[in-house]
Design a protein around this nucleic acid. Structure first.
Length: 455
RNA sequence: CGGGGCAUAGCGCAGUUCGGUUAGCGCACUUGGUUUGGGACCAAGGGGUCGUAGGUUCGAAUCCUACUGCCCCGACCA
């Protein structure tokens, strides 16, 4: 996976904000190895099984010159590892193996650790940002003295993810828990935020897992409680990845290119001198630039004199820069500046004296507008259906989220998946209790769950 | 792993059917000039093992054989 600087800057903005939110809630960062001995990896059986089919494996530790092929290298058969190493697809195994040594008493708890790392999952098919063999993410791994505390932790992070998605990415999400089929391998419960892309398909954007005592038991992580009794610790893990960049792109972009929410845009405001940078214009541009920077706004003045304004307009639109300021001689004469917003493509002329507060407010408006627009789209793509026929037909013609009755069995879920490719995205946390009949089996159901085709 | 397709300049393609000048076009790049309020124009340039290897032929981007790589669809998945 290659992420170029402009794309990486988006990730950095996401990362910085999330990191801040984790730290505000008591978490600290640490780092664990990328290579995991196979014996450790397989200790928690369900988890190992869940990832087994997509693991890259290191078997040797040395290359040598190939005697039959000059100038080429070959794997040195003498350098076979005694035990193979797994390239981490996730770090529960190595981390719980380490936590065993770190935790003795309830006084060592809770342990609230996050790591920013790369992981590898050897998928059969990749998709830019949404499913890459290697990706960047954060993975939180926490240990607690009680079940309730662990569940609360998983829910707290679930809230943080939802808040981040909606407030920063301007991407509305549905909060819920996963069905058994869709749950993280090794978890007792998985909480998820589910977003809707503009093509009507759902995107799992972040998951937070309540792991019960599964990993504690697999890695024998025990502690003495305040009554001096030994018990297994309770655990959570949670992560979001560079997949969020894909979600961001697919939530807001249009035919002219990216549309970035101001809170995550690497460049929030670009000033384009028209027709080209000259000293009068640059002087004014610099003045506006520093005034905006004082407000913490990320501004760029485009001083490139080899490209014409029209070209630059198109380029910054493609890059999703939220606000573009066009400043030319005519503006200077009239004491105005042209303000163009990316989200609606509106252009207006604003008095130079007023441009700084205007732009500052406009960035907030754009952030709000993007969220509201995405939410409106999502609301118009939520269908409540009661029959399987209607489900199938709307799924094909319209897509989106479907609130349907389900009998709660994996068998039904599997059948629906086989027949329609739609899966249960989540059982919403705010599910209304409502008795009905499963749209597939006709068996009784106590509330509607969310179906969709997903990435 | 199954089914389809593609491989010619940095990118996108034509040329291949039916072998025959020096392999071409658009974009990009370099230089010079003129331009400049929505992706400028003119001129002159640079850049190619036509995926790889072998074969047929007086002659191969073009025909034949094998191989390699990539893309799309399906099974797996955050």
């Amino acid at each position: 996976m290659v992420i170029k600087p402009y794309g990486y800057a988006i990730w950095e903005n996401m990362r910085d904000q999330l990191d801040k939110m984790f730290k505000e809630t008591g978490h600290v960062n640490a780092y664990f190895p990328i290579f995991i001995p196979k014996s450790l990896f397989e200790a928690e059986e369900k988890n190992a099984e869940g990832f087994a089919k997509e693991c890259a494996v290191v078997t040797h530790y040395r290359l040598k010159n190939d005697p039959l092929n000059k100038g080429k290298l070959m794997v040195d058969p003498e350098a076979k590892l005694e035990e193979e190493l797994i390239v981490r697809p996730t770090s529960e195994a190595i981390i719980w193996n380490t936590y065993r040594d770190w935790i003795q008493s309830y006084r060592d708890l809770p342990l609230l650790i996050n790591q920013w790392a790369n992981v590898v999952r050897w998928e059969m098919r990749t998709r830019p940002f949404l499913r890459t063999t290697e990706f960047l993410w954060q993975e939180g791994h926490t240990a607690h003295a009680t079940k309730k505390e662990a569940i609360d932790e998983a829910l707290l992070i679930h809230d943080i993810y939802a808040q981040f998605a909606e407030e920063y990415m301007a991407m509305p999400v549905i909060k819920g828990s996963k069905s058994e089929n869709e749950r993280f391998a090794g978890a007792d419960d998985t909480f998820t935020i589910e977003a809707l892309m503009q093509d009507g398909k759902a995107l799992q954007a972040g998951t937070s897992h309540y792991l019960g005592q599964n990993f504690a038991k697999a890695f024998n992580v025990t502690f003495s409680n305040d009554k001096n009794e030994n018990d297994f610790v309770w655990a959570t893990s949670w992560g979001v990845s560079t997949r969020l960049i894909g979600g961001l792109i697919m939530t807001h972009s249009d035919d002219e290119g990216l549309v970035l929410p101001p809170k995550l845009a690497p460049i929030q405001v670009v000033i384009v001198p028209i027709p080209k940078p000259d000293s009068d214009i640059l002087e004014k541009a610099n003045e506006i630039c520093s005034a905006l920077k004082k407000l913490g706004i990320k501004v760029k003045i485009d001083t490139d004199d080899t490209k014409r304004p029209g070209f630059k307009f198109a380029e910054y639109e493609m890059k999703g820069v939220p606000v573009r300021l066009g400043l030319g001689k005519r503006d200077l004469e009239n004491n105005t500046i042209e303000v163009a917003r990316r989200d609606t493509k509106e252009k207006i002329s604003v008095a130079l004296d007023n441009v700084v507060p205007h732009v500052s407010q406009l960035l907030e408006d754009i952030q709000d507008n993007l969220f509201n627009r995405a939410k409106l789209f999502r609301e118009s793509h939520i269908s409540e259906v009661d029959t399987y026929d209607e489900f199938k037909s709307l799924l094909e013609s319209k897509g989106g989220f479907f609130y349907c009755h389900w009998d709660g069995t994996s068998e039904t879920e599997e059948k629906i998946k086989e027949e329609t490719k739609a899966t249960i995205r989540c059982i919403p946390l705010n599910m209304k209790s409502e008795s009905g009949l499963c749209m597939y089996s006709g068996k009784p159901s106590v509330g509607r769950v969310v179906f969709a085709k997903a990435y």
